[in-house]
Design a protein around this nucleic acid. Structure first.
Lengths: 102, 102
DNA sequence: TTGGTTTACGTTTATCGTAAATATC
DNA sequence: GATATTTACGATAAACGTAAACCAA
């Protein structure tokens, strides 16, 4: 279990979560300051890599499938962990022994 | 707080964890099937991005600094979360309604 | 000198935005 | 017809391995 694995890129997971939260590529793109095309590619790449259809394509946006909803919870966990890592690093960076509780 | 952030790439965090576990670039490279040069770049990139020195360079390998050790715990959390994400996806992939509890 | 790390170099691969095409309501 | 997604395309940037250089015990 100490083996390294080929995991989906963090950025794809982030994009997935953003799109799920905003309900459309357009809205998510506006929020992250990127283009809808990029997010579309991210979502498609992730779906292809996982072999799972995450969203149902609708005329006015993207809606999570059942599988997508299940994975969204895990995606949130991943991004949360990554954010804690970054936050801890900032603390080490400034030498702050601030109260970063895990 | 719902804002997207610029987080370190997952691969860099994975490499960091592998090097920390194996104690040297050479050993970690052998384990992951890559080259020491790549891992050296990954570690350096991560250190530069975080502004933290993760390892002390010794003649026979790399030893975690105090800051590195603190961050290693978080790195393990991130990779664990990513692994759970991937595992959940594999479950969804096969259409297994296995007991994946969220 | 031996085992390990780092840098240099060239090539391959991935990533992105703009803009055109497509689909849905 | 309007809004959203997707694909095409070209350009920019990132990633890797090999091999040489460097450093420490």
């Amino acid at each position: 279990m100490a083996r390294p694995q080929r995991l989906p890129k963090l950025q794809l997971i982030q994009s997935f979560a953003q799109v799920a939260e905003h309900g459309s590529l357009a809205a998510a793109a506006k929020a992250v300051g990127g283009s809808p095309a990029t997010l579309s590619r991210h979502v498609s790449s992730l779906e292809a890599e996982l072999g799972v259809t995450l969203f149902e394509r609708r005329g006015d946006g993207l809606a999570l499938t059942a599988s997508g909803a299940a994975l969204f919870a895990h995606a949130a966990d991943v991004t949360a962990a990554a954010n804690r890592f970054a936050a801890a690093a900032s603390g080490q960076d400034q030498g702050l022994d601030g109260t970063i509780r895990i």
